[in-house]
Write a protein that binds this DNA or RNA. Structure first.
Lengths: 353, 353
DNA sequence: TACATTTCTTGGAACGCTCCAATGACTGAG
DNA sequence: CTCAGTCATTGGAGCGTTCCAAGAAATGTA
C-alpha cells in the first residue's frame, strides 16, 4: 500500500535492493525471503505471497556474487576462444555460440568467454578459471587427437562436455559429435543415386580424428555400392589453393564426382574445375562439409553436409548441467547425423549423348 | 622448506587456498596478503617476497566472487547475443568476439554472453545483468536507428560502448564505427582508376544508418570523379536472391561496375551477371562490403571492404574500461577506415578492341 | 488440558575478500 | 632522550547471500 516504485526495479537508488531490505518490508526474516526464492514450498502460502509482493514491489534481484560465494556455484559455463585460426577452425562457430548461449540462459546459466593462446592445448587458462571459482564447468570444442584437456579436467573432477568425440582408445567424459562417416556416406549415396560412378574423396592429411572418420565413411559407402575405390582418394590441408592443386590430380583420374571433407576443400575443387573449363554439378559433382555461409552463396550452390549446430550446442549444455548436478553419473555420448543440404553442385552427370 | 605441492595449484585439496591460509603460512595478516596482490608498493620488499613465495607455493588465487562482492566489480563485460538472424546480421561476428575476448583478457576482464530475444531491442536482459551485478558494463553491436539501448544505459549510468555510431541527432556514449562512406568512396576511386565509368550502387532500402551512409559515400565519390549518378542506384534487402533481381535491372542500364553495400548483395550481383553470361571482373566489376569468408572463396574473388574487426573489438573494450574507470569522462568516438581487399572482381573493364 | 509431532520461521555464523581506521615500528629533528 | 612524522602492518567490520540448528507456531493425540 505504501508509496512504492512502479514495481520496476533498480532505476532509482544507486545502491540496490538487498534481501534484508525486502525482509524488513515484508515483516519477515532474511532467511524467509531466501526461502521464498529457493524453496517456496517451505513457506505458508500467505507468507509466500506477502514476500513475493515485497520482492516485486522493490524489484529485488539476488546479488550473483553473494550467491556464488555462499553456494560455490557461479552458474557460469566457460568456453575457450582460440587466438588465431579464426576462419580456419570452424566457419560455423558463431552458430554454436548462439546455441550455447540460449540453451544455457534457459537453464539459468551463462557463457563466459576466455582466451586460450593460439592453437595450443594449454591447460593453464582452464586451471585459472577453476582456481578462482569463475565457472562451474567447461564446454570444449575443436578437440582432436592428443588433446590433453579431457584427461586433465576429468582428473581434477571438473565438469565438462566436449563438442567432438574422443578419438583415442579410452573414452573420457561426455561428448556430443556429428557422425561424419555417416554424413559422407549419405553424400555418396546421393551421388550414386544420381548416376555417378567414379566418386573421389578429397580429405585432410591422415591423422586427424574427424578427417579419417570421414574418409572411412566414403570408403565404406563405395564398397556398399560396389564402386571403385583405388586411386580416388587425395589429401590436402584445409586451404583453398592447396586443395585446388590436389583436385586437379583427381580430375586427371577421370573422377565424375568429388566428395570433400570440408567446404573449403570443396571450394578448391570448384577452382580446379573452372580451370579445366568444367562446371560443378553439370560436369563433375562436388560436395562439401559444414554448410558454411559460403556454400549457399557460390554459384552453383554447393551441396554439403549441415551440422545441426543448434542441437549440438543445446546438448552440450544439457550434458554439462547434468554432470554438474550429478558428478558421478555415467558418461553420455551423443552422435548426431548431419543433414545433406542438396544444391546444384551435385546434379546428375551430364548424359553421354 | 616444508613439503609443499610442486608450486602448482589446486590439484590436491577439494577446498581451495584462501587468503587466510596464505597469510598464516607467510606469517602475516590476511590484509597484508591482500596488499601484496593489490598494492605491492605498500609492503617492505622483504615481506613482499615472503608473501609472494607463499602465494606461489600454495598456488593461491583470489576467489572472484568474494572480490566481486567486496569491490562491487565483476570484471565481466556483457555482450548480448541475438536469437535469430545468425547469418544475416553480421557474417563476421566471430572475429569481433575473438577480439573482444582477447583484449578483455589482457586487461583482466572477461566476456559474458547472454541471450537477447530475436531482433528485439529489449532492455530487460540488460536490466537483469545490472540488477544482479553480473557485469560491469556492456558492449553493444548491431545498433541502428531507434535503438533505445544507449539512452537507457546512459540514463541508468551503466557503462557501455557501442560498435556502431549513433545515427540519431543526439550522440550518446562512446562508440567505435567503420567509416562506410569513406570505404565505399575508396572502392569507387579504385574502379574509376581502372577505367570504369558507369558505377552503379546496390544498397539496402533507405532508412538504415549504415546503409544510407554507404550510399552517400558512393554518390559523393561519383561527384568527385565527375561521373554520372542518375538511375544508377538500386535497393534490395540483404538477401542474395532479392539482390539478384535488382542487379539485373542495373545491368539493363548499362552499368560497367556495381558497388554493393554488403557481400551478400554482391553475391546477388554475381548471380545476375552469370545469368547474362557475364563474368564478374572481366565484364562488369563488382565490389562488396565486409570481407566475409565467402568473398575470398568465390571465383572470381570478390573485391570488398574489410572491416578491421580486431581493432574494433579492441577499441570497444578499451573505451569501455576507460569509462568504467572514469564514468564522467568525455564521450569518445572512433571512426575507422575499412581496407579495400582487391581481388579479381574489380579487374579493369575489358578493352573495347 | 497437556504433550508429542509436524510445520513454519528465525538467529547466528560463515563463504573469502577488501575497506577503513588504528596500531606498532622506524626514522630524523629538536 | 623525547617527540612528531613517516612507513609498514594489523584488527575489525561488512559486502549479500545461504547453511545449519534451534525456536516458535500450528496441528494432532491422549
Amino acid at each position: 500500500m505504501a508509496r512504492t516504485p512502479t514495481s520496476r526495479s533498480s532505476s532509482g537508488k544507486a545502491g540496490g535492493v538487498t534481501l534484508a531490505m525486502v525482509a524488513r518490508r515484508a515483516g519477515v526474516s532474511p532467511q524467509t525471503v531466501s526461502n521464498a526464492i529457493n524453496a517456496p514450498e517451505l513457506l505458508r502460502p500467505e507468507t509466500l505471497e506477502r514476500v513475493r509482493a515485497a520482492i516485486d514491489a522493490m524489484g529485488y534481484r539476488p546479488h550473483r556474487a553473494a550467491q556464488t560465494l555462499r553456494t560455490r556455484s557461479s552458474r557460469l559455463i566457460g568456453y575457450g576462444v582460440q587466438s588465431v585460426d579464426v576462419d580456419r577452425t570452424t566457419p560455423v562457430m558463431d552458430r554454436f555460440l548462439h546455441a550455447l548461449t540460449h540453451t544455457a540462459e534457459e537453464a539459468g546459466h551463462r557463457i563466459l568467454l576466455f582466451a586460450v593462446p593460439a592453437g595450443s592445448r594449454l591447460l593453464a587458462p582452464y586451471q585459472e578459471l577453476v582456481d578462482d571459482y569463475s565457472v562451474d564447468g567447461f564446454v570444449l570444442s575443436d578437440t582432436d587427437r592428443g588433446d590433453r584437456r579431457q584427461a586433465w579436467l576429468a582428473k581434477h573432477h571438473i565438469p565438462f562436455t566436449a563438442f567432438g568425440r574422443m578419438w583415442s582408445d579410452k573414452q573420457i567424459g561426455d561428448w556430443v559429435d556429428v557422425d561424419g562417416a555417416a554424413g559422407i556416406g549419405r553424400a555418396v549415396d546421393h551421388l550414386a543415386e544420381r548416376g555417378h560412378r567414379k566418386v573421389a574423396f578429397l580429405g585432410w592429411p591422415r591423422g586427424s580424428g574427424a578427417g579419417d572418420d570421414r574418409a572411412e565413411g566414403w570408403k565404406a559407402a563405395l564398397r556398399r555400392h560396389g564402386l571403385p575405390v583405388r586411386g580416388l582418394r587425395a589429401e590436402s590441408v584445409d586451404d583453398v589453393d592447396a586443395a585446388r592443386t590436389v583436385a586437379l590430380r583427381l580430375l586427371d583420374t577421370g573422377a565424375d564426382a568429388i566428395v570433400c571433407a570440408s567446404d573449403t576443400l570443396a571450394m578448391g575443387a570448384y577452382r580446379a574445375l573452372r580451370e579445366r573449363g568444367l562446371t560443378p554439378g553439370d560436369d563433375v559433382a562436388v560436395t562439401g562439409f559444414d554448410d558454411s555461409p559460403a556454400a549457399a552463396l557460390v554459384s552453383p550452390g554447393l551441396t554439403t553436409l549441415a551440422q545441426p549446430m543448434d542441437v549440438i550446442g543445446a546438448e552440450c549444455v544439457r550434458l554439462l548441467l547434468a554432470r554438474i548436478a550429478e558428478p558421478d553419473r555415467e558418461p553420455e555420448h551423443i552422435l548426431l547425423e548431419p543433414r545433406l543440404a542438396v544444391r546444384e553442385s551435385s546434379a546428375p552427370p551430364r548424359p553421354l549423348m
